[in-house]
Design a protein around this nucleic acid. Structure first.
Lengths: 205, 205
DNA sequence: AATAAAATTGACCAAGTAGTCAAGAACCAC
DNA sequence: GTGGTTCTTGACTACTTGGTCAATTTTATT
């Protein structure tokens, strides 16, 4: 688990601690101590705490990218993709609850929202990560249009953003409630209603 | 604007500063300075910073309650209620952008999410406020069922929570993007799709 | 006017904050 | 080995943090 590489160890420790708690509540000293790194080394690799956060976000995205690629693979039907995605998302949240003792929500949203007005680099990074996620949704929506599941002329870009907002909102709600229950009940069913897919296409699965 | 009452002045200043920035980035000293109150007075009224935050949330909810009551009044058709609500929500976000120079999102979500794992009182308060909001949604959804706009047996409680999540998610997204554009484009149309209302009922308005 | 209660003040504290820096250690190519 | 580069260290700074407290002023009650 723990990287031998100093920089990676800092990044991994940071994403864990910040995701569980918050950016401001986790100090550079905390991260250094947990990663067993002296502060001078920290500032050898990062020129600020914010820069570490940005790199942690990128690395976390890269770590999850494989899952995204698998779930949103064209080998799955468009509907399967969103189904598998909500399952995956739920499992991830469940894992944070078991591992950190708390529902942690979406790290990009929490961190991006917390620092939105103070660290523009962090806000921008969160924004960019969401855009990348939305490309997966868009592509799936386009396939839905092609298959006649969604009407010609559907604004896939707008709808992808709605999906992104909805999922993010569900995660934040789960974090604030510190409970997986509404997520389990609402995430998938609400998402498919939001997608505007006729129920006849959902019966099959 | 500025209250003559010391306690109110602290609460009003706090909600403003915390909403614009974040809980952690605004210190007790900052709030005291902005409210022109000495720190001893602060701790005469509040026994901790967290307690102030909880009271600020309650007061902010009370301040907005009138708008909610007007918008969700049974004098409006159920569809009108959600329409007026999205309009109001958008205008509120627009106001924060103009006033604070930044899209601020939902204060209960931002604050609740930021402090979820550190200050349980804050998390709980945010949770409670969302529950109160959901009661407005639920009541409207029940009226929709009664009018045949939604099918008998609709789980209004679950759907209200979905609505809450979606709106919150849109706000957070707007904050992270620091832009009103997606909100303007997606908030209302996505909400009505999420509600699962047959389009024939929407044509009328 | 006397008294008690509520409100205000500013000095104070211990602990933490992000970030710096000069010195040394480890590693590299040659 | 030599020389240069990258890493690591720990002490250091200047400042901020949430919170305390005893002394004072203001306000309300009689």
């Amino acid at each position: 688990m723990a990287s031998t590489n100093t920089k990676d160890r800092l990044v991994e420790t940071a994403i864990e601690m910040v995701w569980k708690n918050s950016y401001s509540s986790v100090s550079v000293d905390d991260i250094c101590k947990a990663a067993d790194v002296r502060k001078g080394s920290f500032y050898h690799y990062f020129k600020s705490k914010a820069e570490l956060a940005v790199e942690a976000m990128e690395q976390h995205y890269q770590k999850k990218k494989g899952d995204f690629d698998r779930v949103f693979s064209p080998a799955n039907t468009p509907i399967e993709r969103f189904e598998k995605y909500t399952d995956l998302a739920f499992e991830n949240q469940k894992k944070t609850l078991e591992e950190y003792g708390h529902v942690c929500g979406c790290p990009f949203a929490s961190l991006g929202s917390e620092m939105a007005s103070q660290e523009d680099l962090i806000r921008e990074k969160a924004d960019k990560v969401f855009q990348r996620h939305q490309r997966y949704y868009e592509s799936t929506l386009r396939d839905m249009v092609a298959e006649g599941i969604l009407p010609e002329g559907t604004d896939v870009s707008a709808r992808a953003e709605e999906v992104s907002s909805y999922i993010c909102g569900q995660f934040m709600m789960a974090r604030v409630q510190n409970s997986l229950r509404p997520l389990e009940r609402d995430l998938k069913v609400g998402l498919f209603r939001l997608l505007g897919i006729d129920s006849k296409y959902l019966k099959a699965s």
